[in-house]
């Protein structure tokens, strides 16, 4: 599996920065609201115009078609949006994703406390917390090789938060996936460990 590397990546409120994540490494990012954390994740996923380059292993983002990059470097936004009627419509129809091994979607659903029937549910019936948890399953179903998480557990109660943390940690260890996690919760950072950075006045500062 591959690491994630940012080279001179910056946007209008963030000076160009360099940051490297090993394969399977967990890095936390915090900072006051408006410091550009979400914009940084959006820039890595190539959703906004910005400067700099990103690498997945030894493959440059600019050498890859944007849809392929976004599938491999998966971003989980703070607010999840759903374009179809049912939950299942949003998952890839090919459950093997070309790798031969079937993606364990049912396992992931169980790990987050859902029955497999949830795939037939209408998105409109879901609560905010349910949407947030199912958005994670939707993201993992595209088998990303690096994860960008924007406040993945912000609106969840402790029990659900623990389930989400466990699932992300399991996915990270099993597949040796680099995870860049924006979290304002110091407890969470302590609990899960890993390097920790802080965005302050447009610069990246190392914490701990």
């Amino acid at each position: 599996m591959a690491g994630l590397r940012l080279a001179g990546l910056g946007h209008r409120s963030l000076a160009p920065l360099d940051l490297g994540l090993e394969a399977g490494e967990l890095v936390f990012l915090s900072g006051p609201s408006g410091s550009g954390k979400s914009l940084l994740l959006r820039a890595i996923a190539d959703l906004d115009p910005h400067v700099g380059e990103a690498w997945l292993g030894d493959e440059a983002r600019s050498s890859m078609a944007p849809p392929l990059w976004r599938r491999r470097v998966g971003l989980l936004p703070a607010e999840s949006f759903w374009w179809g009627e049912t939950v299942g419509e949003h998952l890839p129809s090919d459950r093997t994703n070309g790798t031969g091994a079937e993606t364990p979607i049912a396992d992931w659903l169980t790990a987050l406390g859902f029955a497999p029937e949830v795939l037939d549910w209408s998105v409109k019936r879901l609560s905010t917390g349910e949407r947030q948890r199912l958005a994670l399953v939707r993201l993992l179903a595209q088998t990303p090789e690096a994860l960008l998480l924007d406040e993945a557990t912000a609106n969840l109660d402790p029990a659900n938060r623990d389930q989400v943390e466990t699932l992300i940690e399991r996915y990270r260890r099993e597949r040796q996936v680099a995870v860049l996690w924006v979290s304002h919760d110091p407890e969470q950072r302590r609990r899960l460990g890993g390097r920790s950075y802080r965005l302050h006045e447009g610069r990246l500062e190392s914490e701990s």
């Binding site: 996923a45 959703l47 078609a65 944007p66 849809p67 392929l68 976004r70 599938r71 998966g74 971003l75 936004p77 607010e79 999840s80 949006f81 759903w82 374009w83 949003h90 939707r138 595209q142």
Partner: peptide
């Protein structure tokens, strides 16, 4: 906007 970007993030062109 949110829906369109969600589809882009899901790897759609």
């Amino acid at each position: 906007r949110g829906k369109i970007e969600a589809r882009l993030l899901a790897g759609q062109n």
